[in-house]
Amino acid sequence: MAGDYETHAQEEILHSDEDETELTTPIEVLQKLEEAWLNEKFAPELLPYKGELVDCMLDQLQHMDQNLRRVKPGDFRIIIHKMELDRIQFVLNSYLRIRLEKIERFGAYLLNLEAQEEAENIELMSPEEKLFAQQYVGNIEGYLHDTILQHMPPNMEHFQLASVGSKPNLDSYVFFKVLKDTPSLVVEEGASETRESDIIDLEAGSQHIIRYRPVYRLLQNGTVKLI
C-alpha cells in the first residue's frame, strides 16, 4: 500500500512542478523525505531528526499554496495540485507523528542516553522535540509522585521512569532494500550462547529481512533503506 501510494505521489509532483522554476530540488527533497518517513516508520528506534528536509518541505508547501491562490478559481488543475499538497502534508505529518510517538514511548530512555553520550554528540532529537520529551517525562513523574509516591513509606517513594521505561528492541526484524553495494556484512544469528557469525554481501537493489542491529549503521549512512 505504502509503495503504491509513494509512486503516485512522485508522479504527481513531477506533474505539479511543471509551472515552477526549480525543477529538480523539490522532487529530491520529497524523495528524501519519503525515504526518511519510511525508515522512521519501520525502524524500532528513533532515528536522527531530518530537520532540514522538514523545514524545506514546509517552505515548499507554503510556496505551492501561494501559487495555487493565483490560479483562477474553477480551474480543474487546482484539485490535482491541492490533492498533491494534501499527500505531501500527510507524509510530513505522519513522519512527525511517528517520531513523537517514539519519543513518548522511549522518552526517559532517550533523555538518559543524551545525558550520557554528550561526548559522542549524537543528536537524535531536535531542540523542540527534546523540550517536549522533558516536559512529557517530567509531567508523568510529577503526577505519579504527587498522587501516590509521596504517600508511600520512605524506602518506596523513589521512582524514575527511566528505570522501568521501555527501550527500543534492536533485535526486531526489518525489511530493507540495498541502495549501494556493500560487501561482507557480519551478521550474528541465534541466541547469545550459540551465536554464529555469518558474512553476507549486499548487492544494490536486493531486498533482505534481517535483525535491525547489524544494519542500523548502514541505515544511518544511507546505504540501505527500510521498506
Partner: peptide, 8 residues
C-alpha cells in the same frame, strides 16, 4: 499534527 491522520 492532528490533521492528515489518514493517507488521502
Amino acid at each position: 499534527l492532528q490533521q492528515h491522520l489518514q493517507p488521502p
